[in-house]
Design a protein around this nucleic acid. Structure first.
Lengths: 133, 133
DNA sequence: TCGAACCTTCACACCCATGTCAAGGTCAAG
DNA sequence: CTTGACCTTGACATGGGTGTGAAGGTTCGA
């Protein structure tokens, strides 16, 4: 698949796909004409990158943890303590971010509920659920 | 409390406190000499701002949702549907971010576990727990 | 053969969160 | 009165993620 295809399949601009490559997050083979050729698994990978980026993780960190994210048990023979420390740090930062987000989301939920209770009948702008999911 | 105090109590630089004020996230009274004077409740507020910023929420959004975050039931008489839509959107984005972070953190946890199983005895760099907290 | 649609690299430009520095005012302690 | 620690505003700088445009190559269908 070429860069336009990957872009369409992921909703990420070609500009950004080249940037992620430059940052070492994805790699592409090259066709004879110089065009980038991407493997299918990169669609998922790019989605994962987007999610992490949106969650405030910078590309440098993403690059570090990405190899460890797909499945464990694979190539865990090195046991580099540096790497382990970094992973533990990122794990804890994520846990912290999760706590903050949950707390604030719950406050939002309560506020929205209060609005709805204060003004029944109105609001409810089409196909949207107030459920917590 | 003046800016240096607030800075010490929150770990946020004076520069950033002024910036948050400029962005409408906090406000300060002024003393006769022009110095900013902060109320105690701002310590918590600044911590909250930091948490949201670290979680990838931009100041503009923070400014919008912050008034709704402290307690519901207060001044919910307006029932502006614009506001409600924005809150719902942010609630959903947070839920999404939480899901992404949990998923990736869990992958990290599995990977770390796998490392530890592959290389017992070593690692374990002092006072750190592998528990999920 | 031509044009459209794609690709390449490179560069400039933007926003945002942040640091840092300069030039100056306030105030309390020595 | 001076010094040092604090405050003010304003400006310039930087890094990260992103958009956009120029100048040019490839490919394919009319």
């Amino acid at each position: 698949m070429r860069i336009g295809d990957l872009s369409h399949r992921t909703g990420v601009s070609p500009r950004m796909l080249r940037y992620y490559e430059e940052q070492g997050l994805i790699t592409a083979r090259r066709l004879d004409n110089g065009f980038r050729e991407y493997d299918d698994y990169l669609v998922d990978r790019v989605h994962k990158i987007r999610g992490l980026l949106d969650a405030g993780i910078p590309t440098r960190i993403i690059g570090n943890i990405l190899p460890c994210l797909h499945q464990a048990e694979i190539v865990v023979e090195d046991a580099d303590p540096q790497l382990r420390a970094m992973l533990v740090e990122q794990r804890d930062k994520m846990t912290e971010r999760i706590a903050v987000l949950e707390q604030n989301r719950d406050a939002l939920i309560r506020y929205i509920d209060a609005m709805d209770r204060a003004a029944p009948e109105s609001n409810r702008s089409s196909g949207e659920t107030t459920a917590v999911a």
